[in-house]
Write a protein that binds this DNA or RNA. Structure first.
Length: 319
DNA sequence: GGGCCCGCAGGG
DNA sequence: CCCTGCGGGCCC
């Protein structure tokens, strides 16, 4: 017997998925008509795609009150895992027995060669390196290729891909520089090249009586809004169409999430934003991956490499 | 597993 | 200085 909470969650997931599929179809059509224009019928020798350059669209009308954006259920039990099989234990990174490597070699990729020599006994809270690039820039960071893997957010921050250690959004009034997908919102949908993302705010930090607010995260307890500087940054990005760096974390319940740690999945565009009123207000965003980047890989579900990341995974339900 | 502590980055 | 933020570690 599904609970009320579960029903709403499923509804929202379906809605978000439909949104993403709509965007996919739209982009596919655009692509097809673009090819048709440059390639007359019956003419096969025309060079395929030339180098795909990302050209920002002049202007795209925004709907700030987009009803297709899914709402998030008001009450959310943090420990309640929709798909326990896909969830990694929060504190087990680095403690996973070696036999997990037997699951697949490909899923760990070259990324984990970096992990091979990781010293798990390193001092806690020690800065592991000095940052040489400014994370408050748009686009790629020199020397950090798509697919780069880190054990922790701290390491990722030192590489200037995503500066904050805890927060999921990094940005300013110029727009968002980067976001982290860590599975903090259970109705977000991840299809790889497309995903939905929930803004920040509305979480009353809790703590003990002696040390109030000494916990860094908390369940949703009030409304979000675009006045929140992070949400505002994402909204601005949807207008400017500037690229946003995306990292996926091991806690994200998605076949594109790494099994451990965090990985850099390249540049995305914030394609759509909306504010949904359901329970608490939440800011929702739809991201689209910029074409022409190294393909994403599936990790935790399906056959690794069975999909280069460009196709629609209409059968994907594991979100 | 949960409870609670803590540091850091960023912005005010 | 203050506060927040989809971390990480340690203890039970």
């Amino acid at each position: 017997m599904p609970t009320d909470y579960e029903l709403r969650r499923q509804e929202n997931i379906a809605r978000n998925m439909k949104l993403l599929e709509g965007l996919m179809g739209k982009h596919k059509q655009e692509e097809e008509s673009r090819i048709k224009q440059t390639k007359p019928v019956g003419h096969n020798n025309v060079p395929k795609k030339k180098k795909r350059i990302y050209t920002p669209k002049k202007h795209v009308e925004l709907s700030s009150e987009d009803e297709i954006m899914g709402s998030r259920p008001a009450k959310r039990a943090r420990s309640e895992s929709p798909q326990p099989g896909l969830r990694r234990s929060l504190r087990q990174a680095g403690k996973i027995p070696p036999n997990h490597q037997a699951q697949s070699q490909t899923q760990l990729l070259s990324l984990v060669t970096a992990k091979a020599g990781v010293d798990h006994d390193r001092e806690p809270n020690r800065r592991s390196g000095k940052r040489v690039h400014n994370p408050k820039t748009f686009g790629h960071i020199p020397g950090i290729p798509v697919g780069t893997w880190w054990e922790s957010r701290e390491d990722c921050s030192n590489d200037a891909i995503h500066a904050p250690w805890v927060a999921g959004i990094s940005g300013s009034l110029e727009g968002a520089y980067s976001v982290a997908l860590s599975g903090g919102y259970e109705d977000d949908v991840d299809m790889g090249d497309y995903f939905t993302f929930t803004g920040s705010g509305g979480r009353a930090l809790k703590g003990t009586k002696a040390n109030p607010k000494n916990l860094r995260t908390a369940p949703q307890s009030s409304d979000q809004s675009f006045e929140n500087p992070f949400n505002k940054a994402l909204k601005i990005s949807s207008e400017t169409r500037k690229p946003v760096r995306v990292i996926r974390g091991y806690k994200l319940p998605s076949p594109y999430a790494p099994l451990e740690g965090y990985k850099y999945d390249g540049l995305y565009i914030v394609d759509k934003n909306g504010l949904n009123d359901g329970g608490f207000l939440v800011c929702k965003f739809a991201f689209r991956r910029i074409p022409g980047q190294p393909p994403l890989r599936r990790t935790s579900a399906g056959k690794p490499d069975d999909n280069n990341g460009s196709d629609v995974d209409s059968d994907m339900t594991g979100v």
